[in-house]
């Protein structure tokens, strides 16, 4: 497919305009609300990074107890035992369900950890003006936004298990305190990523006054 490849791309801000990130329409710079869709307009969200870090920190604070306390408590013949996220995955793997153990480990450990690292990296790269590939960073950001919500899977697993496994005295499953912490951590990191104004990644090009190799 033919694509326009101008050597010097003009941004809406360069052109003295402000873009609506909700509906992609552009307006004169001083416009406060998008006349088409009603969204609030800001050329660059100056508070973006503060909000990213604020949500990031509370997300991390919730993520620690989420790993230390049990996600679910199983009562089998009157004896109760708790399973943490990692503990539950290990038990699954020992019972031979390697694939499912991997799904849990990826969704509940790898994705949240990767997300903390990725969001911190993106925010720092903008704050410190790092010269890493802008395209790669944008793709990383879009991936974080796309994948982050899938971490919620473990909360749903706990919901289904504790609703279903209620067999009077023989076996019953109750949700553990980590479930709430974990769900909050997922919500806060989603909010952290959504607070990030990805246009900031590209602004440093203009600061440098040169077009960078985009590939």
């Amino acid at each position: 497919m033919a694509e326009a490849h101008p050597t010097h791309l003009l941004t809406a801000r360069d052109a003295g305009m402000v873009a609506c990130t909700d509906c992609t329409r552009v307006w004169p710079l001083e416009t406060e609300r998008c006349p088409r869709c009603g969204a609030k307009l800001v050329s660059r969200d100056g508070h973006s990074l503060s909000r990213v870090w604020a949500w990031w920190v509370v997300g991390l604070i919730c993520y620690i107890p989420a790993n230390l306390y049990p996600m679910l408590n199983t009562t089998f013949m009157g004896k109760t035992s708790g399973d943490t996220i990692v503990g539950g995955a290990v038990t699954l793997a020992m019972h031979g369900a390697i694939a499912v153990a991997l799904v849990i480990l990826i969704a509940s450990v790898a994705i949240p950890m990767g997300k903390f690292v990725a969001v911190a990296y993106l925010a720092l790269s903008v704050q410190r003006g790092w010269h890493t590939s802008k395209l790669r960073r944008t793709q990383l950001y879009e991936m974080v936004e796309f994948i982050g919500r899938w971490s919620m899977i473990d909360v749903f697993v706990v919901a289904v298990l504790s609703a279903l496994v209620q067999l009077s005295v023989v076996v019953s499953i109750q949700p553990g305190p980590a479930a709430l912490n974990f769900a909050l951590s997922v919500v806060f990191t989603m909010l952290s990523a959504r607070s990030f104004d990805s246009r900031l990644i590209w602004d440093s090009i203009e600061r440098d006054g040169e077009e960078e190799d985009l590939t």
């Binding site: 003009l10 305009m17 873009a19 992609t24 329409r25 552009v26 950001y141």
Partner: peptide, 22 residues
């Protein structure tokens, strides 16, 4: 999409919500 030129109507323009390119 093409680079904008002077004289374009606002309604003919689109800005990338991810990177602000016009």
């Amino acid at each position: 999409t093409h680079s904008p030129t002077i004289g374009d109507d606002l309604e003919d323009l689109i800005a990338c919500p991810t990177c602000d390119a016009l």
